[in-house]
């Protein structure tokens, strides 16, 4: 050995230096790494005092704090993924939406935007923005298909209206005052002249939020309980193209209501730029989501793998709500 070292001292020196550098690089690379811990064959998430909380114990803690909502979200996503194919159009829309959202975050948070965006995505359990947006589209598509399939049962209507307001709302009655009657007569006269509903609405309707748009309210159905009851009841009775007589609403005044679509074909023909069912779901009926998901899940088939707790959680969230809506 001594002879070898004497003859090859330079090589030995190189080996020693290389070994030292390797050890140092390994140490330096690893010193900042988070070290793990196990107990009883399980990974430990954290420890406090003499208690080690393992991953299965932490799963129980996590589930207690938000597991139910997470399971329901994943169920909804699973149904959407199982029933709606991801199309190139969806990816394109998601990409555009993501760009707009990122731009908005950048505008609000500057160079720090990624941190805030990632935190917000983490809070909804979705690490990827575009995936989340694609899932949202799938769910909307699923609910839209449900609405279309239950068109008649839901009494879906596209509605426009003309409003004549009370002269004195504090003292309104079902019998119009002379002033109110005069304004209503002007509307009737315009119709008698053969003018179209949209034109009459633009000229005479006293609801500034819809008058300039020809009186268009949008797509409603029997679950649109946010509307005045008298208005909704009459709207749902109208046939396609029918204009109602004057409808008294104790809250607003007097309405003439037109049903511009009462069939899927007309509804889709009237709305080529936007999806009318998405408009219904987003604006006037948010009860359809669970019903749509549940019906589709029944169609596809659910296997709970013997998990009674999960089955109870899912059926109580979706099936009972469907029953309440019947």
């Amino acid at each position: 050995m001594g002879t070898f070292l004497k003859k090859n001292w330079f090589i030995a020196l190189v080996i020693c230096i290389f070994t030292f550098i390797s050890i140092y690089v390994i140490y330096d690379t690893n010193k900042g790494k988070l070290k793990g811990k196990t107990e009883g064959g399980e990974d430990v998430i954290y420890s406090v005092g003499d208690e080690n909380v393992t991953s299965s114990q932490f799963y129980d803690e996590l589930f207690e704090s938000g597991g139910s909502d997470t399971v329901l979200t994943l169920f909804q996503k699973a149904v959407a993924d199982a029933s709606v194919e991801t199309t190139d159009e969806m990816k394109e829309i998601a990409s555009q939406q993501a760009e707009s959202i990122i731009s908005s975050y950048r505008s609000n948070y500057g160079s720090d935007y990624e941190k805030h965006l990632n935190a917000d995505l983490a809070s909804i359990g979705s690490p990827d923005l575009e995936s989340y947006l694609i899932t949202s589209q799938k769910i909307s598509s699923l609910i839209g298909d449900y609405a279309k399939a239950h068109f008649d049962e839901l009494k879906i209507r596209q509605i426009s209206y003309i409003l004549i307001q009370f002269e004195d709302p504090a003292n309104a009655s079902e019998t119009p005052t002379a002033d109110e009657q005069a304004r209503m007569d002007a509307v009737d006269a315009a119709f008698a002249e053969g003018k179209e509903f949209a034109e009459v609405a633009a000229q005479f309707s006293e609801d500034s939020s819809t008058a300039s748009n020809g009186g268009v309210l949008g797509v409603i159905d029997a679950n649109t309980t946010s509307l005045d009851n008298a208005f909704l009841t009459k709207s749902l009775e109208l046939a396609e193209g029918e204009i109602s007589d004057w409808v008294y609403s104790s809250s607003f005044g007097y309405f003439r209501i037109m049903c511009t679509a009462a069939t899927p074909e007309t509804l889709e023909a009237n709305n080529t730029d936007t999806d009318p069912y998405t408009s219904l779901i987003n604006s006037y009926d948010n009860t359809l989501g669970n019903k749509a998901v549940w019906e589709k899940a029944q169609e596809i088939g659910i296997d709970y793998n013997g998990n009674e707790e999960i089955e109870k959680l899912i059926t109580s969230a979706f099936a009972e709500k469907e029953t309440e809506g019947e």
């Binding site: 954290y46 932490f58 704090s65 597991g67 399971v71 699973a78 659910i302 296997d303």
Partner: peptide, 27 residues
């Protein structure tokens, strides 16, 4: 945990989602 059609949701899926959304507050 459950399967809808061919889509399977496992305990790991739920765990990952909860870890991403609620780990800090829960701990």
């Amino acid at each position: 945990l459950f399967k809808v059609g061919e889509t399977t949701v496992t305990k790991g899926t739920v765990y990952d989602m909860l870890m991403n959304s609620a780990a800090s507050d829960t701990i």
